Simulated scan of single mutants.
Amino acid sequence: MPTDAADTAAAPANPLLEVSDLRVHFRLPRAARRRARRAPDLPEEAAGIPRGDTVKAVDGVDLRIAHGETLGLVGESGCGKTTLGSAVMGVRPEARGHVRYRTAQGRVIDAAAPAPEDVAVYRREVRMVFQDPYASLNPRMTLLQIVGEPLRVLLGVTGSELEDRVAAILARVGLRPDHLRRYPHAFSGGERQRVGIARALVPGPRLVVADEAVSALDVSVRSQILNLLQDLQAEMGLTYLFVSHDLSVVEHVCDRVAVMYLGRVVELSPTAALFARPLHPYTEALISAVPVPDPRLRRRRPVGPPEAAGARRDRRERIRLRGDLPDPSAPPPGCPFHTRCRHATDRCAAEVPPLREIAPGRLAACHYAEELSLAGAP
């Protein structure tokens, strides 16, 4: 569960990972740019093509993650959270900015431009758990080969030592060590995801990027994997960057939450505070879409600050955002969310709101964050 320490500060002083002004921009193919120039006067919907030349998947993101915490990264599809996760892994050559990682020895590695001797260290200490437990495992390799590959490539472990270490990590994630020579098709989705977790943890990492690690699993299996990830974090001292679109999962496992919209972070808060009272209208809309298990509480949302004395509760429909996510190659001027925000004013259409501290440990990119009384989770 989220720790009390995470509620005290949004930016740890000595972070394990520090992302500074990270930008990942993709140049559109020449054919798409040529079609856009041939139809400059048509609206985007009529032309059926992007109006810009560059897709700004991640556009100036700053984050800090402390050792031992879990930072959730949420947003709807297309907001850039997966691209941000892959940039943290150092596999995006288009990335600009800084991704500074502090090793166990105190040395700082910039994953955006690592020195040749630092690449193997970073690959060993920063690992990823992928979303799809089926596509992420080679069907022609056994569990011994799949899980043992990082040991062989990164640490040079071979022979009986490799087999022993693979058997030990499989047992730790809940799989039988005598399944070493079986292939992925012999396992269920949840078991395959346990194999993926074992592959990520076998070289002894300190930071794990979990990219939608439970979204492809059944609900009952999902809870088992989440509990496993938390147990492993406590046992091995892991730090998680937890990428997800499911806020109910994020609420359960994360210490702090960063909300992304159109390539930018629009809110960064401790988890409990964010769900009690969001500061950005986009966060409020995401929270309103979280399913409520109790049928008697559905369509009920708090009106006004939840900490206010006598704050009444009233029936309220789910907040439905108007329109679609804007084209990331031609973002709207001003606040990127103003085209879908019910609180938007002329100022929002003209002026970009900075990500600023609204309350201790809470940041939001909204001109009216202090004035709005947004609804949290019921």
Rank of each mutant, 00 (worst) to 15 (best):
I49D: 06
D211A: 10
V58W: 11
G376T: 07
P50D: 04
P15R: 07
E370F: 00
P354K: 01
G189V: 03
I109P: 02
E45A: 15
M141D: 02
P133C: 11
A10S: 14
D53T: 11
L297T: 05
R362H: 15
R340Y: 01
I146S: 08
P378N: 11
P2M: 11
P12G: 12
P354H: 05
V250Y: 05
G263T: 12
S86K: 15
F242D: 00
S136N: 06
C79M: 09
R342F: 08
F187E: 02
Q230D: 14
V129C: 03
A168H: 09
I358K: 08
T70V: 14
V195P: 00
R181F: 10
G106S: 02
F337R: 00
R64K: 13
I225T: 05
M141W: 13
L180W: 11
L143V: 11
Q145A: 15
G97A: 14
I169P: 00
S223E: 04
D118R: 04
P333W: 07
E317Y: 03
D314F: 08
S269N: 04
K81H: 11
V58P: 13
Q230G: 07
A39C: 09
Q131R: 11
P29E: 09
L175A: 04
L144I: 01
F26K: 04
F187L: 15
R299S: 14
D211Y: 07
L63T: 08
A46L: 15
R102I: 01
E149Q: 14
R315K: 07
V55P: 03
R34I: 10
M260S: 06
G97L: 13
P291H: 09
T239W: 03
A112F: 00
R23V: 14
A95V: 10
I65Q: 07
